[in-house]
């Protein structure tokens, strides 16, 4: 008896926290004087920027310029790196996420992340998408099933996998796996989605599918995407930020950056003179 009571209690609380994330009002991100070190090496140097809600922002720049490190600051994924040290403020909807009291797990529920290489868990397709819900302690089967279906539809994968949800996710193609990872992220209904070169390991057809998807998702989410691919940045993003050796060189409307950049270095990079 006691156990069942606890169960229902647990579920209620969890569902409440989920509903508490207001996805109808996507989040605004403010970055104030952020510096990052790995040991003695300074990877990010005094960056200030503001990212607008319901937009796609692309981070571009040569390898090692710090754009991935910077992206991982928004959901505090660098916390687990031993020598990592960060100074400065990152505010999401006015709240500094680097305050001591902030619960990292709660934060990451609101800020989803898609990685460079598709990294599905060695579990079934269904279990992959349901994972985020299950770790929150949700046990309501119907609720989970609905969310999984919704997420797979949003990720444009439902039609391809609806008959084999119990099959291993590892049997999917690379492009399908990456869309599965996007679905996995969407299932917990975050408000911001971080994408770290999500198409770099994929073929052109899979890439274009994911680009279309990003275009769709923008209506509901704030998306930040790191990319090596200039064309991709110009195709899908509203804003573009160009990084170079840990510094934010230029940041503005994508159209402007690609047609009329203010800085010489930006122009050199996007025209392919180095990188």
């Amino acid at each position: 008896m006691e156990i069942t009571m606890e169960k229902t209690l647990d579920q209620k609380v969890v569902v409440n926290t989920i509903e508490a994330i207001d996805t109808s009002k996507p989040s605004k991100i403010e970055v104030k004087d952020v510096n990052v070190w790995y040991g003695d090496f300074q990877a990010i140097k005094g960056i200030d920027m503001e990212i607008k809600p319901n937009t796609v922002t692309a981070f571009i720049g040569p390898s090692g310029c710090g754009k991935s490190t910077f992206l991982r600051l928004f959901n505090r994924m660098n916390d687990y790196i031993d020598s990592h040290r960060m100074e400065g403020k990152i505010k999401i909807n006015g709240k500094n996420i680097y305050k001591k009291k902030v619960n990292v797990e709660e934060l990451r529920k609101e800020i989803g992340m898609v990685f460079q290489k598709p990294n599905p868990f060695p579990k079934s397709i269904f279990e992959n998408v349901a994972y985020g819900l299950k770790i929150q302690g949700i046990k309501d089967k119907k609720f989970i099933e609905e969310r999984v279906e919704k997420a797979l539809k949003q990720a444009d994968l439902w039609e391809e996998v609806k008959d084999k949800l119990k099959k291993s996710a590892l049997a999917l193609s690379g492009g399908q796996q990456q869309r599965l990872c996007i679905a996995r992220t969407l299932a917990v209904e975050p408000s911001i989605i971080l994408m770290d070169e999500p198409t770099s390991a994929l073929d052109p057809i899979s890439t274009s599918k994911i680009e279309n998807l990003i275009f769709e998702l923008k209506k509901k989410y704030t998306i930040i995407i790191v990319t090596h691919n200039m064309q991709q940045a110009s195709r899908i993003s509203d804003y573009t930020a160009f990084f170079y050796i840990g510094e934010l060189i230029e940041y503005g409307k994508t159209k402007k950056i690609f047609t009329n950049p203010e800085k010489k270095r930006t122009e050199n990079y996007i025209t392919g003179r180095f990188g």
């Binding site: 994924m77 934060l107 529920k109 992340m113 990685f115 868990f121 770790i135 996995r184 992220t185």
Partner: peptide, 9 residues
């Protein structure tokens, strides 16, 4: 990382 990224401990 995938798991942490979803808010898992």
């Amino acid at each position: 990382e995938a798991s942490f990224g979803m808010g898992a401990t």
